[in-house]
Design a protein around this nucleic acid. Structure first.
Length: 259
DNA sequence: ATGTCCTTACCTTAAGGA
């Protein structure tokens, strides 16, 4: 079962680049972030025409997540528990029925800038809510995949120029500590586990020639429960997508599970 | 860090978010 995560930065803007990548990627499941669309505005027929089931959790203008799947989905839920007043569309879950059933959680973690401030407070509170949801799901002792745009640079080796990020919400010690708390629940960070070398990124800013200078950061992650980690066969970043026509500022990251 | 991009609205230009 090949599972990918891809922050597309707007479905309308990516209506050519996303299908082009899908046609070559051969993924079974794709978690999308920043669809920037309401559910009714999402061009689901484009993806249904490519053999995907489409589940969205959108909102107007900002945020929004979705799951595309060639395999059957069960028990789709929308929203991260823990704050009924939170209207931001950043979390979707579904159970994918392959050779094994895998619970897939697609997430778009808050950016948090500027920090300190209310946006950073929201980020940290959201991460605490995610930790509670992950802890609950882990009690099921099933294959779980938590994938998406975490907006966290885990370590210095995950940035080309870490010194530029020391005051940024993506790299502040509190953000990285909260990310480690997720890992310490018993999750495995798929890409880093299989690829220990530095210089591997999933995001390059549109500004200041970041792509041309390879001034990137690695912020899109797939975290696995022990039962999913046991099935891990491969983990890769589709870096070349960033050089394509009208690209997102993120590229797809994917895993292959024996499921 | 900022040489950009995306979306929306008081829509041919600016603001907010990233």
């Amino acid at each position: 079962m090949k599972i990918a995560t891809f922050n597309i930065n707007g479905i309308k803007a990516r209506i050519e680049a996303l299908p082009a990548w899908l046609a070559t990627a051969n993924a079974d499941v794709v978690c999308l972030q920043e669809i920037k669309s309401v559910d009714e505005g999402f061009p689901r027929e484009v993806f249904e025409g490519m053999g995907y089931r489409v589940e969205t959790h959108g909102q107007k203008s900002f945020n929004g997540v979705a799951i595309l799947s060639k395999l059957p989905l069960e028990d789709v839920t929308r929203g991260l528990p823990g704050d009924d007043a939170d209207a931001q569309a950043r979390w979707i879950e579904a159970t994918v029925i392959g050779a094994r059933a895998v619970r897939v959680c697609g997430l778009y973690l808050p950016n948090g800038n500027p920090a300190p401030g209310p946006k950073y407070d929201y980020k940290l509170a959201w991460m605490a809510r995610m930790q509670a949801r992950v802890a609950h799901l882990l009690t099921l002792e099933e294959p779980l995949v938590f994938c998406g745009d975490y907006n966290v640079i885990p370590q210095a080796i995950d940035a080309a120029r870490p010194e530029l990020w020391t005051e940024d919400a993506l790299y502040l010690p509190q953000s990285r500590a909260a990310f480690r708390r997720l890992l310490h629940l018993g999750l495995t960070e798929a890409f880093r586990t299989r690829n220990p070398s530095p210089g591997q990124y999933s995001f390059w800013d549109y500004q200041a020639g970041a792509w041309e200078r390879n001034n990137g950061i690695r912020i899109d992650h797939l975290l696995l429960s022990p039962q999913a980690a046991d099935l891990l066969q491969d983990a890769q970043i589709d870096k070349q997508v960033r050089a394509g026509e009208k690209p997102s500022d993120h590229v797809p990251v994917w895993i292959d599970l024996a499921a």
